[in-house]
Design a protein around this nucleic acid. Structure first.
Length: 851
RNA sequence: GCCGGGGUGGCGGAACGGUAGACGCGGGGGACUUAAAAUCCCUUGGGCUUCGGCCCGUGCGAGUUCAAGUCUCGCCCCCGGCACCA
C-alpha cells in the first residue's frame, strides 16, 4: 500500500527529497532543507512546555472572546485513529486555529466515548477486560492526537467511563426521570439464541445474527425509555432556524417523519356470521371501535378490508371462535420472525382472516378484518384501513388473498369503472365515493374528514415516525441505570448523593441467555437496601445506551474539573451553546437528535439557559480510497501513522484538506501527498531565502492581497482545498523567475498557512525573528496589517485589484479576441478597442461582453 | 420507493450565468549530474491547421439567454441515509 522507492529500504518518501537525519542533527541554524520531523518534535515539545493550548479554569472564566470549537469525540478503538478520524479532526482543528489567529479565545477540547458495545465486543474478542483495554486505547489515541498537532486542551478532557463523568450521566437520567421523561415499558428486541444477547437492528443481517448467522428471535423485555416524543414538535420546529448543514437538518426532519392525515374509527360488526357487503350492517351500540391512522382519508370509500398488526390488543377480542387456532398460529409465527426481516418491503405478504367484520363508516358496508405483519404496531395505531386500489402494499395483499379492489380516484381519461391493474397512489378526481364523487381528492382529504368528524368517527391528526428512545442495554460496559426496585416501595430512583452507581469490576461480563445484563449475576452488587424503606431491594442491572453518554459531553468539557456539579453555571453561560460543531453526518439522527433532546429537557428543568446545544453545525465529508468507502472488509483502510512518520503531520494535514472540499469529499491517493509536501518544502525554502533579502514587486503585492482575501474567505467557509490552492498559486508567483524574494511578500503567508501546517508556521515565525508563538501573537510585531487582536493578515481591496484588465471579447458567446486595457476604462472605450481588433471585425456581429 | 450529495482531462478536483479544466498528481520533453534520485524549466482535453487560427468538448435530451458546467423542464447513472411508516 505504501509506495516505497524501490530499494530505498524505507529511507524516505517516494520520489522526493528526504528529510535527512544528517540535516536534522545539524540543526536549523543554517540554511537547511525542510525537515518536518525535527520541526514538529520541537514545537510539540514547546507547546507542551509552554502550555500553549491549555486553558486554566481562570482562563475559561476570564476569556473575553470565547469561541467553543467542538468536534465529535472518538470512540477509542484498539486499531487507533484511522484516517477518517484524522480528516475530521484536522478539518475542525484548522477552523479552531483560524479563529484563534483571529484573536478569539478558542476552547478546543477532546475526549473519549469509551463506553459501549463496540468496545465491549472487542474486549470479548481479544479476551482482555475492558477496564484494562480501554485505558490502553485511550493512551494510544492521545499519542496520535498529539502527533497530528491538534490544538487540544488536554487540561479539559472527558472520558465517559470515568465515574467522575458517568456520575453525571446518571444524574441526567434522574433529572429526566424527575421530569416524567423516563418510563419503563415492555418492548420487542432482537434476540440471538446462540450468542445469548440482544442485538441492535444493525447487527441483524437477513434475519440472522451478524456474528453467528443464527436466526434471530423477537423477545419482549421491560426497558427504560426516554420520552423524546414529547419534544417532537419542538425538535422539528427549531430546525427552521438553527444554523446547521442543510442535509443534516433534512435527515432529522425525515427521521422525525411528520405526516398529516386523520384518525378514523371503524365500528366492529360482530353479529354477522357470513359476509355480504351489500346488506346493511348491524352494529352494536357499544361495539368496540378500531382506530386507524391514514394520510389518505379521501380514499375511505375504497377501504375494502382492515388489517390489524399481529400484536394489536384487539386481535383476541375480535377473532371468531372458528378462527382462533389459525390466528394464534399466525401470531406465533410472526413473533418468531426478527424485526428486521419482517420489515423488509419486498417480503411476500402474509396474513390471516380473523373471521370478524368492521363497518366502513363511509359506505356503511361490512369489510373483513385481517391481521398481517405488514402492519406494524409501532406506527400509527397499529391498524389500517386497506385501500387496495390506491396503496401498493394493500394492492399486493388484496391480490394475494382475493380481496375486492375498488377504484375511488380517477385521473384524466379514467372513470369509476376503469379497471386498476396496479395501485394508483396519486391524486385525481374522486369516484365511487357517494356524495363526494367529482371532487378533487386533495379536497376530499379535508371534506371527508370533516364529514366523518361530524359523526364523531374521525378527526384530523398528525402522526410521527419518531419513537421514544430506548436507553436500556442488557450489557456490561456502560453506566448502570440509577434505579432501585423495592417490593415495598416500587421503583425508586437512586438518591443524588449516592451517585455514582459505580460499575463493578466483574470478571465474567459476557452476556448470557437470560436476556438481562451480566450485572444481574453480581448479587453482591445489585443487592442493596431500599433508599426509602431500608428494606431489601435490587438495583436495576441494565446499563444505559452509549448515546446517553454523548448526549451531554459538550456540557461537561468546560466544567471537567468540577465534581460538585455536572456543569458550572457561569462557565456554561459563557461558553455555550457550542460556537461551531463539526462532525460526520452518520450521527445526524441519533447523537445530534438525542443531544438536542437532552439539552431541551435540561433547559425545561431549569438547568440551562438555552434549548439548542450548537450555534453552528457543519457536517464533514467522508474520504474514500480508490473511489470506495474505506472499510476493513474492503481492505482499503489507510493507517495514518506511517504517512505522518514519512512526511510529517503538517504535510499530512495539508494533504487531507487538499483532497477535495471538506464538506463534500475526496479520494485518498498515496502519490497525491507529493504535492502538498513539495509546496511546504518550497515555502520553507522561500522563507529561508527571504532572510537574504529581496525587493518587493508590485504585481506580487497585488497578488498577495488577493490571496489573503481568497484564503480568508475560503477558510471561513471550510473550503480548505481552494484556500490551499490559492496559497500554492501565490507561492508560485512569488518564486517565478527565481527572483530574490522580499520579506513583506512571504511573512503574511506564515499565519495563512498556520492552521494547516502549525509546526512549520511556528518555526518560520521564529525564524523571522518573532518571539512567543504565532498562535499567541496579537499581531503587534507583524510586518503587515492584521486583524484586531490576532495575527491573521488583512487585505486592502484596492491593492488586490489589477491595474490592467484583460477584456475577453465574445461575439455571440464565442471568444474571439482578448484585449488588454487599463482598469477603469469606460464602456465606450472598451467597445472601440474591441471593435478595432481585426478578429472581432472578421466575426462582425454585435453584443460583445466584457469581463 | 423517499430524502440528501454527486456526474467536468489519464486521476483528485477548479470555475460571481461571461476565457471550461485553477491547484495538485500522473505523463512527455529538456537542464543539472559519470549515473540515478532530488531540484529547476517547458509541455500535457480531443480533432484539424496554410501555424494566423478553426471546429468539438462538463452524464443524456429539450428549453431560456448575446452567452449555460452553472438557470428551467424531462431522463440516465453513481455514492450516502431512510424505508411494508399506512
Amino acid at each position: 500500500m505504501f509506495a516505497l522507492r524501490p530499494g530505498a529500504g524505507g529511507a524516505g518518501p517516494a520520489g522526493t527529497r528526504l528529510p535527512s537525519t544528517e540535516l536534522r542533527t545539524r540543526g536549523m541554524s543554517e540554511r537547511a532543507g525542510y525537515d518536518p520531523i525535527a520541526i514538529e518534535e520541537k514545537w510539540q515539545k514547546a507547546w507542551a512546555e509552554r502550555g500553549t493550548n491549555l486553558l486554566s479554569d481562570e482562563d475559561l472564566r476570564d476569556a473575553e472572546r470565547p469561541f467553543y470549537m467542538l468536534m465529535m469525540y472518538p470512540y477509542p478503538s484498539a486499531e487507533g485513529l484511522h484516517v477518517g478520524n484524522m480528516y475530521a479532526f484536522t478539518g475542525a482543528d484548522i477552523f479552531g486555529r483560524y479563529r484563534r489567529l483571529n484573536g478569539f479565545d478558542v476552547f478546543e477540547p477532546i475526549g473519549f466515548d469509551a463506553f459501549g458495545i463496540h468496545s465491549e465486543n472487542y474486549a470479548l474478542k481479544v479476551d482482555v477486560h475492558p477496564m484494562e483495554l480501554i485505558p490502553r486505547n485511550v493512551a494510544n489515541f492521545t499519542r496520535q492526537l498529539k502527533r497530528i498537532g491538534g490544538m487540544y486542551d488536554w487540561n479539559h478532557t472527558v472520558d465517559t467511563t470515568d465515574p467522575g463523568y458517568y456520575k453525571w450521566t446518571q444524574w441526567i437520567f434522574l433529572k429526566l426521570h424527575e421530569a416524567g421523561l423516563a418510563e419503563r415499558k415492555e418492548a420487542p428486541v432482537n434476540w440471538c439464541p446462540s450468542c445469548m444477547t440482544v442485538l441492535a437492528n444493525e447487527q441483524v443481517i437477513a434475519g440472522a445474527c451478524e456474528r453467528c448467522a443464527t436466526p434471530v428471535e423477537q423477545r419482549f423485555i421491560a426497558q427504560w425509555f426516554f420520552r423524546i416524543t414529547e419534544y417532537t414538535e419542538r425538535l422539528l420546529e427549531n430546525l427552521s432556524w438553527i444554523d446547521w448543514s442543510e442535509s443534516t437538518k433534512k435527515a432529522q426532519e425525515n427521521w422525525i417523519g411528520r405526516s398529516e392525515g386523520a384518525e378514523i374509527r371503524f365500528p366492529i360488526a360482530r353479529s354477522r356470521a357470513s359476509h355480504d357487503r351489500h346488506e346493511p350492517a348491524t352494529v352494536h351500540a357499544a361495539a368496540p371501535l378500531i382506530s386507524v391512522f391514514t394520510t389518505r382519508p379521501d380514499t375511505i370509500f375504497g377501504a375494502t378490508y382492515m388489517v390489524l398488526a399481529p400484536e394489536h390488543p384487539l386481535v383476541e377480542e375480535v377473532t371468531t371462535e372458528d378462527r382462533r387456532d389459525a390466528v394464534a398460529a399466525y401470531r406465533r409465527e410472526v413473533a418468531g420472525t426478527d424485526l428486521v426481516s419482517r420489515k423488509k418491503a419486498d417480503k411476500e405478504k402474509s396474513g390471516i382472516f380473523t373471521g370478524a367484520y368492521a363497518v366502513n363508516p363511509a359506505t356503511g358496508e361490512e369489510i373483513p378484518i385481517w391481521i398481517a405483519d405488514y402492519v406494524l404496531m409501532e406506527y400509527g395505531t397499529g391498524a389500517i384501513m386497506a385501500v387496495p386500489g390506491h396503496d401498493e402494499r394493500d394492492f399486493e395483499f388484496a391480490t394475494a388473498f382475493g380481496l375486492p379492489i375498488v377504484r375511488v380516484v380517477a385521473r384524466e381519461g379514467e372513470d369509476a369503472d376503469t379497471p386498476l391493474s396496479e395501485a394508483y397512489p396519486g391524486h385525481g378526481t374522486l369516484v365511487n365515493s357517494g356524495a363526494f364523487d367529482g371532487a378533487a381528492s386533495e379536497e376530499g382529504q379535508r371534506s371527508i374528514t370533516a364529514w366523518l368528524a361530524e359523526k364523531n368517527l374521525a378527526e384530523a391528526r398528525v402522526n410521527y415516525r419518531l419513537h421514544d428512545w430506548c436507553i436500556s442495554r442488557q450489557r456490561y460496559w456502560g453506566p448502570p441505570i440509577p434505579i432501585i426496585y423495592c417490593d415495598a416501595c416500587g421503583t425508586v430512583p437512586v438518591p443524588e448523593e449516592d451517585l455514582p452507581v459505580e460499575l463493578p469490576h466483574v470478571d465474567d461480563y459476557k452476556p448470557d441467555e437470560s436476556g438481562v445484563s451480566p450485572l444481574a449475576r453480581a448479587a453482591s452488587w445489585y443487592r442493596v437496601a431500599c433508599p426509602e424503606c431500608g428494606g431489601e431491594a435490587r438495583r436495576e442491572t441494565d446499563v444505559s445506551d452509549t448515546f446517553l453518554d454523548s448526549a451531554w459531553y459538550f456540557l461537561r468539557y468546560p466544567s471537567a474539573h468540577r465534581d460538585d456539579v455536572p456543569f458550572d453555571a457561569e462557565l456554561t453561560e459563557k461558553w455555550l451553546p457550542v460556537s461551531t460543531y463539526i462532525g460526520g453526518e452518520e450521527h445526524a439522527v441519533l447523537h445530534l437528535l438525542y443531544s438536542r433532546f437532552v439539552t431541551m429537557a435540561l433547559h425545561d428543568a431549569g438547568y440551562l439557559g438555552f434549548e439548542e446545544p450548537y450555534r453552528v453545525f457543519r457536517k464533514h465529508a467522508l474520504i474514500t480510497k480508490d473511489g470506495a468507502k474505506m472499510s476493513k472488509s474492503r481492505g482499503n483502510t489507510v493507517v495514518p501513522d506511517k504517512y505522518i512518520e514519512r512526511w510529517g503531520a503538517d504535510t499530512f494535514r495539508t494533504y487531507l484538506m487538499f483532497l477535495g472540499p471538506f464538506q463534500i469529499g475526496g479520494d485518498f491517493r498515496d502519490e497525491g501527498i507529493q504535492g502538498p509536501y513539495g509546496f511546504l518544502s518550497r515555502l520553507w525554502d522561500t522563507i529561508q531565502g527571504e532572510l537574504r533579502g529581496g525587493h518587493p514587486d508590485s504585481e506580487v503585492e497585488r497578488r498577495l492581497h488577493a490571496t489573503i482575501r481568497k484564503v480568508t474567505e475560503d477558510v471561513a467557509g471550510l473550503r480548505y482545498n481552494t484556500a490551499i490552492a490559492a496559497m500554492m498559486e501565490y507561492l508560485n508567483a512569488v518564486r517565478a523567475g527565481n527572483r530574490a524574494v522580499a520579506r513583506t511578500e512571504v511573512e503574511p503567508l506564515v499565519p495563512l498557512i498556520a492552521p494547516f501546517a502549525p509546526h512549520l508556521a511556528e518555526e518560520a515565525w521564529e525564524l523571522l525573528g518573532h518571539e512567543g508563538g504565532i498562535f499567541d501573537s496579537d499581531g503587534s510585531t507583524a510586518g503587515f496589517d492584521t486583524v484586531e487582536g490576532g495575527v491573521w493578515p488583512t487585505f486592502d481591496p484596492e491593492k488586490a485589484k489589477e491595474d490592467s484588465v484583460e477584456f475577453v471579447v465574445q461575439v455571440n458567446g464565442k471568444v474571439r479576441a482578448r484585449v488588454e486595457l487599463p482598469r477603469g476604462v469606460g464602456e465606450h472605450a472598451a467597445l472601440t478597442a474591441a471593435l478595432a481588433d481585426e478578429n472581432v471585425g472578421r466575426w462582425a456581429g454585435e453584443g460583445e461582453v466584457r469581463k
